[in-house]
Design a protein around this nucleic acid. Structure first.
Lengths: 339, 339
DNA sequence: AACAACATCCAAAACGTTTTGCAAAGGACT
DNA sequence: AGTCCTTTGCAAAACGTTTTGGATGTTGTT
């Protein structure tokens, strides 16, 4: 384990002072150092594989080049990965590193984690949820630049990014309407979260825009997993005038709908069209036929959050913004015209 | 934003010198400070909410209290979450923070990331893969304590942790044999990775141990996703003397088996028993009936890796170890006796 | 009563950078 | 040729800790 090369070594090797090295490396604009010298120093530094100790430089300029990401849970959903990856990659591109912490549901732990991050002088914090929800921001976060990821706060002084649930549901239902369906059912979630209300609203908007009547019997709600979807679908499919198409709250419920359809002897998409939401590849891609669905922009939200945060850090004073990101439709094979 | 309270403030408030504060706080064993004074200082520090600046103390004692985790991909599998959570939680419990970086498949990027971590003076690095595979460790990692997560290296000087593929497959097949099956098929992966060979070996071991004949026609291989599983299952189920039970390489392939069984008019588990592997809850829980499967210990592997790494860091000289972790069976509803 | 031994605390140096105030050197203008 | 200005490089201070060597004060022994 060779001892790390420091700025001194570079200075000696380049035949100049430490100061000159520092200026040559950092202060690109200032004309305190001769361009030729600068180039020379840079060459030598690169040659020696010099990379400044971030602890030291962080201590000096009160900037750690680290941002923290604290989230409620990280394991249950595969979305976590995409969000973190989006955040990590854009942070890295801008010269920052990401520190990930998850607090479960423990508020005290969360407080403690935020404090720990502050001990490490993080330059900013991303406060993330693993599914879209409203939150109240812990007061510790007001001490440091913060942006909310997949979460929204009543306090509009804090930036946040969430998916545009309404528009997403609209485009999902639009696909079914465009295929010619006039009796379109919806399988909704029962939790009181933004997605539940937003997707229902989008469903209604799309019906209205297409001149289709709203039939309250065509909306069934259940627990938002496969079993719930199976039950809700069974209910809708047993209606005397059953829907020919189903918009499902998410892909897991859509999987339940597949199961009920199969049990009822209905083929997808010939007898029943289905559209899901979330683009859970593990399911949407695995179903037979593949599930047409609307993707949640987790990766993009991660990118947006970090971009916003770093803008805030690097040029403070930018006014906060609440962003809703669009959700792209992913077409597979579960939609066909009704007969 | 109140200015952070430093060690000076504590010293002033407690009426002692900075040195005394530092000793009182850190050096619990040394008798350089009066117990009463120590207690007093600690009370004051807590009162003021003092927490030492980790950048400064890291710089001083060449320890950042940070460990890095670099992995190939983080998004495609939901396992990433569990591994990272395991690593993060145990690190946090021992006073460390985790820095997560993913390099995709880009080797240069990976090198650069490792260097960046070293700039931040990380105390150690976890080198992770998102599915079990052999790797050659980048030479940069020899400069710093390292352990491999879900990956093994030919170089036995480096610690690593992987799932015990053979034992896992054995227990999967054991379940089927215990239920009374004598014609047990296997749907395997075609990739040349440890899991492929290990699970096949475990399958064979279990057959032998139960005195069952090995019939090579009962093993079908395909791409390890749902479509592949569907095809392989179709092949096995069309055999004149078809297997009454299927051990599938993973849960996605098992889902394909469900689809083929349904297409062939076979009910699960009455006509066909199925066991998967991975315990991908999204699928295993969603299938109907629920899929009995063997869980990969991702969370536990994350814990083990960090524990090992920190032991290494805190008391160097511990000899390296290669660990295989056992995989628990998760029983659901896809196994029944043959008729 | 003087001195040794001990307990307690303090001042200062160090970790590796960045940055400020100055000094030295070199060139152009009168 | 002398003055002034510009260009360039250096020494030193600062960031917030930890730790070492030594100073101070207190107690016990002869």
């Amino acid at each position: 384990m060779t001892t790390r090369v420091g700025i001194r070594e570079v200075a000696k090797a380049a035949g100049v002072s430490i100061t000159t090295v520092s200026h040559a490396l950092n202060d690109a604009t200032s004309d305190r150092v001769n361009p030729k010298t600068q180039e020379h120093v840079r060459a030598v530094a690169k040659d020696l594989g010099y990379a400044p100790n971030r602890l030291a430089s962080g201590l000096r300029n009160q900037r750690s080049q680290i941002i923290g990401l604290v989230s409620d849970q990280i394991t249950t959903t595969p979305f976590a990965g995409a969000m973190i990856r989006g955040a990590q990659e854009t942070a890295y591109q801008r010269g920052y590193l990401l520190m990930v912490l998850n607090s479960g549901l423990d508020n005290d732990l969360e407080k403690h984690e935020i404090q720990t991050l502050q001990q490490h002088q993080v330059d900013g914090i991303i406060y993330a949820r693993m599914y879209h929800q409203g939150v109240t921001v812990p007061e510790e976060l007001y001490e440091v630049p913060t942006v909310l990821l997949d979460a929204a706060s009543a306090d509009s002084s804090i930036s946040s990014v969430v998916p545009d649930e309404i528009a997403a549901a609209e485009s999902a239902v639009e696909i079914l309407a465009a295929a010619g369906h006039t009796r379109i059912g919806m399988i909704n979630n029962i939790d009181d979260i933004p997605a539940t209300h937003g997707r229902l609203e989008g469903y209604r908007n799309a019906l209205i825009r297409n001149g289709l009547p709203e039939d309250p019997r065509l909306v069934a709600s259940a627990v938002s997993d496969t079993v719930g979807g199976r039950q809700a679908a069974a209910q809708l499919l047993s209606l005397p005038d059953r829907p020919t198409a189903l918009f499902c709250f998410n892909d897991r419920m859509a999987m339940g709908a597949y199961q009920s359809a199969s049990a009822a002897g209905l083929r997808i998409p010939e007898d029943l069209s289905v559209v899901g939401m979330d683009n859970l590849e593990l399911i949407a891609d695995a179903l037979w036929p593949g599930l047409t669905t609307v993707a949640l922009p987790h990766y993009e939200m991660g990118c947006w959050a970090v971009t916003r945060l770093l803008d805030d850090i690097e040029k403070p004073g930018t006014p906060p913004g609440q962003k809703k990101l669009l959700c792209p439709v992913i077409e597979r094979g579960s939609v066909a015209p009704p007969h």
